[in-house]
Amino acid sequence: MDVTIQSNDVDRFIRGLLLYYDVIAPVARDGRFVFERIDDPSMASLKYDTTLLPPIKWIYPNNEILLEFDLKDITKTEVVAQSRKQVLTFVHPCDINAINLMDEVLAEEPSDVNYLTRRQSTLIIGYECLGPCRENILCFDKGYHIAYRGFDLFFTDIGGRYYVHVATDAGRAMVEGDGIFKKAAYDDWKDLMRARAERKKGFNKKAVEGDIGMLSHFLKEAYNADEIWEAEGRKCLSCGACIIVCPTCYCFDAVDEVCPDMEKGVRYRRWDGCQLRGFCKVAGGENFRKSAAERVRHRVFKKEVYLKKRFGRSGCVGCGRCIDSCIAKISIIDIFNRVMERARRNV
């Protein structure tokens, strides 16, 4: 079932959602956008470019508490896994595709109870990209500029109104009832097709030259290509910006924190990642990924080789956040291009 909504009715729709859910929406902040919990529809921006942090961080939050414990009595330890009902609104396809992948990664047995609990309380409203939103993106190269699943509703701007694809029963429940949405008619569908034809014109420039399907293979051949990894490693500050902003990074560290009374405490997880120096250091002092070059290589391989091998598709959804956030200007697009070029040279 598909419906439409007039652009100026979207506020009413959000107001309705606010009655039942925490509404997380793109909000403008100093010229960029962030996904924030809103309490008024006016805060949300439907037109936005890639947010600083991806929306998945609302399903996989930093410093999430895993356990509550009593220092004196271990039998009083309790698992904390709870979530409020939330709607992530106007999520771009790249971020939807990232959540789809994380659904698989974190549901793989042994699955992660904290992620799944939040995920099950989360509804997703997608928002179609009709053209590239920023410069350093490769979603189009990877086909991640389109989302086929992983949403309850999906909005496409068809001029003055939105075409809304209703994908799930939960989505249907959101659009039924208050008369804001109208059943989509043939003309609406024609406008949708027209908009999508425009999308094809909008997305016309590939960021990576060559057959992206071969990238994983060429990367494996470039494992020891020091001219790539050493050069990037010299630039890399190991600051961790890229792994924090990535929508498919899920590594964490578990940390205990004790109340001042020294009686109760919590164990929580903090975002962590392979680009940080101490990530692979063991208690004895050995560091199993010592150099920045090895760490940069691992990040690229994790996205493009390891996740791909295990889950059948690339772990880089092409959102470009790691590129924008790297002050040393390490670009995964640039690395991919050099790997492709190397492959062409070596043929």
């Binding site: 100093d30 500050l237 002050i327």
Partner: peptide, 19 residues
Amino acid sequence: PDFPVCVECRSKGNICLVE
């Protein structure tokens, strides 16, 4: 912490000053 301030800064969704 053995990691730099960027980790905490980015985790809060701040805009990078150097950027």
